[in-house]
Design a protein around this nucleic acid. Structure first.
Lengths: 107, 107
DNA sequence: CGGATCGTCAACCATGTGGTTGAACATGCG
DNA sequence: CGCATGTTCAACCACATGGTTGACGATCCG
């Protein structure tokens, strides 16, 4: 009995994958463009993307020879609700969020 | 540059550990009592608890020969805020939460 | 067609994780 | 003291993960 939460939380546990999701907040991207800022191989990025896809956090669609990646934020809902059950955290404190983004990306 | 989010999300990625956190919502518990409902060894539970402690999700305090475990829900705040930045999810929908709990525990 | 670009696959390696068992340590109790 | 209880440690095992490289399939373009 394996919960979706397993896949979602373990997908989110990797900083490269979180950074990819953050990039996809801006816009859909091709696999090659997703890989560009990272120093690891394209194959490694491809694996990360398939883990994110299995978790439902992104979707991928091939158009021509380019495969486009799109963020699927709804997939985070279940996990987000689970976490909120523990803390009654401030909903959507975007100031906080931006600071965390900076720490993640600029670190 | 390893974020706290790494530790928190990967701690949450294991169903045994999520179940432990859920149990601790009720009340603080001794290690032996935490272990009781699971079919794995006490040593395995002890490892899970130290992972949760490293992530800051629980604290442990030894009183006598008994080590008490307490939920530290504030540790989830950073991760929760991070996730909410992606979705603007309903804050604290407790009905949802209880259904997810049932699915997790009763599964 | 032929070459360049986009992306995945397969094999491999190092490391981490979740589990086990058995020994050890620490503390409370008769 | 001596034994039972509570918890961790150490060694080990099987398997997953994140990375590599090289070959490959697919698509566009000249």
């Amino acid at each position: 009995m394996k919960s979706d939460l397993d896949a979602i939380f373990s997908a989110l546990a990797d900083p490269t994958r979180r950074a990819i999701l953050t990039m996809l907040l801006e816009d859909d991207m091709a696999v090659t463009d997703v890989a560009e800022p990272f120093e690891i191989s394209l194959a490694a990025i491809s694996k990360h993307l398939s883990i994110l896809t299995r978790a439902g956090l992104i979707s991928q669609e091939k158009r021509g020879r380019v495969k486009w990646c799109r963020l699927e934020p709804e997939a985070m809902r279940e996990a987000s609700v689970w976490m909120q059950g523990f803390g009654q955290f401030d909903p959507v404190d975007l100031d906080h969020f931006e600071r965390f983004l900076e720490r993640e990306l600029g670190g």
